[in-house]
């Protein structure tokens, strides 16, 4: 039981990294970015190739750069070529499928069993149950703290304003196109980082690893909102992290209750719908209460 719960927590925290990335595009920039599924796979692929060739840390770091490049492409399509955000994301996602295959050497999956990963240094030094948690927690905390600090800088504030009111941003001499590209690059860099963690955590990279990840990230953000409530930036990030962990635990329990593995994606989609309806119902209730008061 302990292993199962720990596994749920670890996976939840890895997804939380992705949720922070998606928080940047969906919440801060207010852009629905469909690049996510493919940049997650890209992160998996780059980090797996690194680990397979004996450079787990290098692969890990390069995955961030690869993800950022993917985000730049989507950003470029949106701002310079004026392609609708959704279509821009779909185009990058489609193109990246080939790129991901090339990165993985035209193989649909790369097993890393027996290879050194970023988790190897702690192996044998801690009780087996806690071997992997510190690395995951460290990455998550580092990403969360860095992004929180970044959003307080001048550029970070300009980024937030771009998602809030583009007219005002341009009238204040801020390059809104540049901000969007930067935001999408950061977002996808973090998503790829999450993919990189996942590949080395599972000692396995698969060309379809990222399928449905966007919905999972969305579920995390929305589930988190339902629990933590909307508010400041810090609170929103906390909500995304918590949402990812809660989401993952729900899946863990569903699997314990003998839900077939094939039902995973359906459950993710249903969770998003459920979380959205709960939020809508709550708003409606609050309004009714106000009217009656």
């Amino acid at each position: 039981m302990g292993t199962i719960l720990m596994g749920g927590l670890e996976l939840g925290l890895i997804l939380a990294v992705m949720a922070i990335g998606m928080f940047l595009s969906f919440k801060i920039l207010n852009i629905p970015d469909l690049t996510v599924d493919s940049s997650f796979t890209l992160g998996c692929a780059v980090s797996a190739i690194g680990a397979a060739n004996g450079h787990p840390v290098l692969g890990f770091l390069l995955s961030v750069l690869a993800g950022m490049a993917a985000g730049c492409v989507t950003g470029f399509l949106q701002t310079k070529l004026k392609i609708q955000p959704i279509l821009a994301g779909i185009l990058t996602m489609t193109g990246l499928y080939s790129v991901n295959l090339w990165v993985m050497g035209d193989k649909p999956n790369i097993p890393l069993f027996g290879k050194a990963t970023i988790f190897t240094p702690l192996q044998g030094k801690l009780p087996v149950l806690f071997e992997k948690l510190p690395v995951i927690a460290l990455v998550l905390i580092a990403v969360a703290v860095l992004i929180r600090l970044f959003l307080k800088t001048q550029i970070g504030m300009s980024l937030r304003a771009t998602g809030d009111n583009e007219d005002m941003v341009r009238a204040s001499s801020i390059n809104s196109d540049g901000m969007k590209i930067l935001g999408l690059a950061l977002s996808n860099g973090i998503v790829a980082l999450s993919g990189a963690l996942m590949a080395q955590y599972q000692s396995f990279s698969d060309i379809s690893a990222g399928i449905g990840m966007m919905v999972i990230g969305l579920a995390s953000i929305i589930v988190g909102d339902a629990f933590v409530g909307k508010g400041s930036v810090g609170r929103g990030m906390l909500a995304a992290i918590l949402g990812a962990v809660i989401y993952r635990f729900i899946l863990t329990f569903a699997l314990q209750l003998r839900m077939p593995l094939s039902g995973l994606k359906l459950l993710s989609a249903l969770l998003v719908v459920l979380a959205i309806s709960i939020a809508a119902a709550r708003d409606a209730l609050a309004k009714r209460r106000m009217r009656n008061a």
Partner: peptide, 18 residues
């Protein structure tokens, strides 16, 4: 925060505190 953004009009925005 709105005023902070406006106060940077015409200046380069960097990694300094907003």
């Amino acid at each position: 925060e709105n005023l902070g953004l406006a106060y940077l009009r015409g200046k380069k925005r960097g990694m300094g505190s907003g």
